[in-house]
C-alpha cells in the first residue's frame, strides 16, 4: 500500500525522496542541497498536512543519491526529515538525518560583533549539543542556540 499523501507528488523511478520537511524549510533545503543548480528531474510539493509537523513538504530527486555529509547539512532545519532511496520504483532503503559534528556555512553567527558578520568569511561551528541544538562559533567562540539559528 502506498501512502496517499506521497502520491500527491508523482513517483520517481530511481533517486531520493526527502519527506517530512517542515513546510517553511522546503526552499531552504533546496538551496542547501544545491538542488537549484543541478540538471536532474526534481518534483516537490509543500503545505501538505502532517500530524507531526503541522505542514510539511516533500522533495523527489531523480537519479540522485546523497552522501551522508551532504544530506546531514539539512538536519538543522529539517531534523525529522526521512529519506527514501528508490530503485526501480521500490524503496530499497530508508534513512534519517543526523546533526553533524561540524557545520560549515549554512548558519549565520548570532553575535553581531563576530568577524563572520563583518567580512566575507564562511561560518564554521562545532556542535556543543545535539538535543537542543547549540553551535559554537569557530571564530568568536559564542554559542548560537536553536532558537537563534538563522540560515544564510
Amino acid at each position: 500500500m502506498k501512502d496517499i499523501k506521497e502520491l500527491k507528488v508523482s513517483a520517481i523511478k530511481n533517486g531520493t525522496v526527502i519527506d517530512h520537511i517542515p513546510a517553511k524549510s522546503v526552499f531552504k533545503v533546496i538551496s542547501i542541497l544545491n538542488l537549484d543548480k543541478i540538471d536532474n528531474h526534481i518534483t516537490f510539493g509543500t503545505n501538505f498536512e502532517s500530524k507531526k509537523l503541522g505542514l510539511k513538504g516533500i522533495i523527489k530527486i531523480s537519479e540522485k543519491y546523497f552522501e551522508k555529509d551532504e544530506i546531514n547539512k539539512i538536519a538543522l532545519i529539517a531534523p525529522d526529515a526521512k529519506l527514501n532511496i528508490i530503485k526501480d520504483y521500490v524503496v530499497i532503503e530508508k534513512k534519517v538525518v543526523e546533526v553533524p559534528e561540524k557545520i560549515i556555512g549554512i548558519v549565520k553567527c548570532v553575535n553581531p560583533k563576530c568577524i563572520t558578520n563583518h567580512e566575507s568569511i564562511t561560518t564554521k561551528f562545532t556542535i556543543t549539543s545535539k538535543q537542543d541544538v547549540s553551535l559554537k562559533c569557530h571564530y568568536c567562540e559564542k554559542i548560537t542556540n536553536q532558537e537563534n539559528i538563522e540560515i544564510l
Partner: peptide
C-alpha cells in the same frame, strides 16, 4: 582588534 574572532581568522 575590536571584532570578535578576528584573531582566529
Amino acid at each position: 582588534h575590536p571584532i570578535e574572532g578576528s584573531a582566529r581568522y
